[in-house]
Every structure is written in C-alpha cells, then in structure tokens.
Design a protein around this nucleic acid. Sequence first.
DNA 1: TTAACACACTTGTTTTAAGCAAGTGACAAT
DNA 2: ATTGTCACTTGCTTAAAACAAGTGTGTTAA
Lengths: 129, 129
Amino acid sequence: MIDKNTSNYRSACPLSTALDVIGDKWSLLVVRDMCMKKTRYGDFLASPEGIPTNILATRLRRLEEVGIIEKKPYQTKPLRYEYFLTSKGASLLPVLQQLAVWAHSYIPECGAPPGWFLNAKPENLLKDR
Amino acid sequence: MIDKNTSNYRSACPLSTALDVIGDKWSLLVVRDMCMKKTRYGDFLASPEGIPTNILATRLRRLEEVGIIEKKPYQTKPLRYEYFLTSKGASLLPVLQQLAVWAHSYIPECGAPPGWFLNAKPENLLKDR
DNA sequence: TTAACACACTTGTTTTAAGCAAGTGACAAT
DNA sequence: ATTGTCACTTGCTTAAAACAAGTGTGTTAA
C-alpha cells in the first residue's frame, strides 16, 4: 500500500496545521460549549449562534476523529452519546481564552468573557469519572 | 435610514465574534506572515501553504476593513502597497502563540514553533516609524 | 522601439462546503 | 394507535474556495 501523500496538512508549520484542524467558524464554538459542561447534541444546537444540524453532526464526527472530543453512551435504548473533551481538547482552553480577551478588547460590539471562563483551567474540564 | 439588523455577528459571545472575523483557514496565516516581517503580496504568496491569489486579495481587503492590518504605499508608479499589522492585529500574537504550542504538543506530525516566535511580543511587531 | 519581465492583482469557471428545510428511526408516554 | 422526544440524515440551494488564465502599469535589456 502506497503512502497516500505526505500528510494532509498544508505545511509543517504548527499554526497552519492547527488551522487545518480547527480553522473554521464552528469547531471552536462546540469546544466552547463543552467548556460550559454541555454534553449533548441538543445542548449544542441550543447555543445562540444557531449551528445547523448537519454541520453539528459533521463537526462532532470530525472533532472525535482528530481526538479533541470523545463520546460515551448515556443510554442504550436507543443508543445515544454524550460528548466530552479529551485532554487534547481541554488544552485548547488557553487559546479560547486569549481569543475571547482579544475580541473583547478590540471589537467594540462584543461582550466580555465571563469570569468563570477566564479563570477556568483545562484540567477541570475533563469528565470526572 | 434603517438599522441594517442588529450587527453582523452571530451572537454577543466574544469567541463567536472573533471567529466571525478571523475564523477561517487563511486569515491567521497572513497575520503569521506579517509577524515574520513579510509585507508584500508576493511574500504572502510565497509561503509554503500556497494561498491562491484571489483568496489572498480578498483576505487582505477584509483584514484591512476590520482594522487588523493597514497598507502603506511603497511606490507610486505603479502605485503599490506594503501591509502591516495594526496594534489590533499585533495583539493576536498571543493567540497564535498558544495555538502553535497546542498544535506542537498534540499533533505529532507537525513541527515546533521557532523560539523567536514564542518569544516575540506584540509591541515589537508594529511598523517602526 | 519593441520585446521580455516583474509585480500585484482581477476575472471566469469549476469544485467543495455551508446553510436550510424536511424527513427518518428508535424508543417512551398518553 | 397517536403523539412526542432526541439525535441525527438526506436532498437541495446558495455561497465560498480553489484553480487557471488574463490584465494593467510600469522597468530593464536588446
């Protein structure tokens, strides 16, 4: 079997690679929701930005594929899952915090990040089990 | 004149608003290039990710509109511009640094951010004049 | 003086992704 | 049997990305 081209990333630059993975308008919003302890499909749909259902489904699939989130069944009949951040996903928190601070500082129309968010720590975002 | 709908942003969330502005695969790469003191159209095109020329043109226009970069003529015949980060744009540096660190930590195939990048400071990215 | 070159784009077309509305499947409750 | 809930999927339309080629304004070399 032949190597299907040297990696899917545009370059070896870590920033470029990061953007290949989470560089779109929705992925980090799902991560944000998980930082607020939302876990279910319906929770994510209910966020004020109004993500379309099919986009949410593809993002959840993709985020799981790249190891940012994982799903665990919360019932079996019918089989349904809750979604949680992995440590890889929780480690995005500092990025989100910086972005939120930047936006609040430089984009007048937008609100302030809540204190709990700025004080949050990655290790506290993991599913306790 | 009627208010053309209450803002173009999806919600008041600063993170969501940030993603409305820079949430795509290319914008932050242009900012990155400017962090490395690249200033011209051809410089940005030469980056290893291979941004298409029309996309670059639209991104430069957009980034200028939102005040992340500004252009200054470097010659008049024919009229041509160099692009520089504003303080709003330079303030994205901590976000880029966090993202690069994250990618290097959690995405095996990708390289390490160079030391000069991790040690850079926003105020040193501004056009000295 | 004309032909080649450089730079910074623009234009036209194709391909991919986003966005919207509606539908489906597995069950629980009434 | 009918309605309801939840988590999706499917089909279709619209918008954006990607690719290839061309344009405008000049300089330099033959």
